[in-house]
């Protein structure tokens, strides 16, 4: 466990909490892509099946459970509790465009051809593209609430910190998981454009709106 890994996990958790607090306080999930949140719930579900098969550490187990609970509460808020505020019209990304290639790729390129390992691989590939419906929604409406941009910032920061973690682990432990690293790089690239807008607009007190 290194500092990048811890900070990455904290950013990830913070992102999920920011989103939940935003929805809870405003009693609204306007501007949030329910599809992205369903994908994240699917990501955690398929990745953390090893909760039942292997014990890594108390930290690992507790964090996995918290992530799963947060993801499902978020989906519940969007599709059940505050469904009237959900902007279904603009959440129009076609999920099959992500799910079909991701499923295919997880069967083709994995560490071992076993059900649990294929599901883990599926979750890694899916996570790298899960934010696209959200980014698509923002590009469609042309704007995002400031708190939504904070959520995206911490989600992107988590990915960037994981890259630093892998560089660290490569040098100190000779650890290198090609599937995770390649997907992580792809995922981080998706946030670059957003990071630019976040720094140039949101941090200067302006609302994020696209020209």
């Amino acid at each position: 466990m290194n500092i990048f890994r811890i900070l990455g996990d904290v950013s990830h958790l913070l992102a999920m909490i920011i989103l939940l607090v935003k929805i809870w306080r405003s009693k609204s999930c306007a501007g949030i892509s329910g599809k992205s949140q369903i994908l994240f719930a699917l990501v955690f579900t398929t990745r953390y099946l090893d909760l039942f098969t292997i014990f890594i550490s108390v930290y690992n187990t507790v964090m996995k459970v918290i992530f799963l609970v947060c993801a499902y509460i978020t989906v519940y808020m969007i599709y059940m509790k505050f469904h009237k505020t959900f902007d279904r019209e603009h959440d129009s990304f076609r999920l099959e465009f992500l799910l079909v290639p991701v499923t295919g790729l997880s069967f083709l390129e994995n560490h071992s051809f076993t059900p649990l390992e294929i599901l883990w691989t599926f979750s890694i590939y899916l996570e790298s593209v899960a934010i696209l419906p959200q980014l698509f929604m923002i590009s469609k409406t042309g704007e995002a609430e400031t708190i939504t941009t904070h959520y995206l910032f911490f989600l992107g920061l988590y990915r960037a910190l994981y890259l630093a973690n892998w560089i660290w682990r490569y040098h100190t432990e000779n650890f290198y998981d090609q599937i995770a690293v390649v997907s992580g790089v792809v995922q981080t690239i998706f946030y670059c454009d957003f990071f630019y807008l976040y720094v140039t607009k949101v941090l200067k007190g302006k609302k994020l709106s696209l020209p």
Binding site: R5, D9, D50, T114, A180
Partner: peptide, 10 residues
């Protein structure tokens, strides 16, 4: 024997 993979990251 089958390789058991341990993924220790979240």
């Amino acid at each position: 024997s089958r390789k058991v993979l341990k993924h220790d990251e979240l």
